[in-house]
Design a protein around this nucleic acid. Structure first.
Lengths: 265, 265
DNA sequence: ATAAGATAGTTGCATAATACAACGAACCAT
DNA sequence: ATGGTTCGTTGTATTATGCAACTATCTTAT
């Protein structure tokens, strides 16, 4: 095989065909007590694969704008939601000859947890006719997604559910300040099952996850609730053991949470 | 910016500069009761970055050979060690403008756990003058590694140590059959601390991790030990809570095991 | 043949952690 | 004032675990 590499591609890689590289971001948020993911509708332009399909926001790395993979993910997050520093975690990468009809593609997938305050109407971009928050149903969404995005989304949901068992990730889905009941509800929303109040509070206290705001209370039509904030806005806390289900309150959702052989957590 | 893409690069990606893509594999094995990693020495050829440095085995994706990222990782594993189906897990990806002096590179990193039987003298390949098993010291190795491979290796060690707390990963470092004491020793080797025997055995039994081989015993200069095999050769088991340290036996290593904010597990 | 030594495997118990339920506290609405 | 609602805490039965001691089964030495 002999071929010339364009001058602007200066990397000293051997003259092999080079896979295309993208970054996709699974952006989670809680709306109306349900977990949602941000999806964009692909353009209907000629030559575009999966025209009109829903897809994860993402796209090619722009080597002139993006200094790193994470910078690229943050750029896409900001473009779509305006959020600058959410909880962002690498989810994994998917690459194969067949996942994109245009040829060998690999994508670096991230997942982000957006605080409730920032969940506004998303911005439609150049490559996306529409963008919208779509509720998570069991493992994924009802739409048929472009490329292998259904697989990526399911991996993100599974990773999130698994990590909730022993980390404080749902805390990043809340606004800056919150009550302990709101925190517990966030956990229950992601987990899909009810938790015992006193056990949950003991976990939170032992882990030193939150800090009480003196003299700050949530006012309402009943006893005021102490308002807290996270001790760390970005780093999750790890609990020494998994949360167990409570028997006293009914389960809210049908989603089964189960650890599987899936890799990363 | 206007440039032409070589004909053999048929992907319909816009005419942007395209990052180079590699796959690296962190291969772990236990030798002489210590955790080791397989490293290769980079060639001393002109134009090669980091000549003579130790590095993780890996390299560019060969789109003519590799149908997927995982296939590429498995190919590199087989080339170096001859092992066909070890425990293989995606570790993460690293990509930036600066991590390779030749330009924008991203790598998909995997980590593998090799069974004891397959830990033979590694094969030296075309791009590697030497290859050798190097013991893990605290978080990494004593050598200075090429590229950002030190960072990747540290991430692999941390991920492995973290997952040992609540998964059965060390079981994949053993030969096909083993005794419960050997299994416990594998856990202790990776964890760097001693475990209580009865607690460990209860965990293993509750998780249904192993199956006893009838009438098979490890003979020695003392009471024979029941021989077991894994119930599943590829899928790890998840324990409901982290292993705690025993106080009755001395700690073997100085390595501190601690969960951090690092992402994936 | 017997004792000593070593590792395997089990058992019992004191302690710690948790699930569960019930209770009192603080607010609003009527 | 009274009832309703949510907040927050407390007590206790149950479960799980750490720890140590004990027995079992083999080899080797004397």
């Amino acid at each position: 095989m002999s071929l010339s590499t364009p001058k602007t591609i200066s990397n000293a890689q051997p003259d092999f065909e080079r896979p295309s590289t993208t970054v996709d971001v699974v952006m989670f948020a809680v709306r109306d007590g349900r977990l949602h993911v941000l999806l964009v509708k692909r353009a209907d332009a000629p030559g575009e694969p999966f025209p009109g399909h829903w897809a994860l926001p993402g796209g090619y790395i722009d080597v002139s704008k993006d200094d790193s993979l994470e910078a690229c993910a943050l750029r896409k997050l900001k473009e779509k939601t305006g959020v600058v520093s959410p909880y962002l975690e690498q989810l994994g990468s998917w690459g194969s000859k067949t996942r994109d009809p245009r040829g060998w593609h690999s994508t670096h997938a991230y997942f982000a947890l957006l605080p409730a305050a920032s969940v506004i109407t998303p911005v439609s971009g150049a490559n996306a006719a529409e963008a919208d928050w779509v509720p998570i149903a069991s493992k994924g969404v009802v739409h048929k997604l472009a490329f292998d995005h259904q697989v990526i989304l399911e991996a993100a949901v599974e990773r999130l559910r698994n990590k909730v068992e022993y980390t404080s990730l749902p805390a990043f889905l809340l606004p800056e300040t919150f009550t302990l009941t709101e925190l517990q509800t966030a956990f229950e929303t992601v987990l899909g099952r009810a938790l015992d109040k006193s056990s949950f509070r003991k976990r939170v206290e032992d882990a030193e996850l939150v800090v009480a705001l003196k003299n700050k209370f949530r006012e309402g039509s009943n006893r005021p609730a102490q308002i807290y904030k996270l001790r760390s806005k970005t780093a999750p806390v790890f609990f020494p053991r998994a949360i167990s289900e409570t028997k006293s309150r009914p389960v809210k959702s049908t989603a089964k949470v189960r650890r599987t052989s899936e890799s990363n957590f």
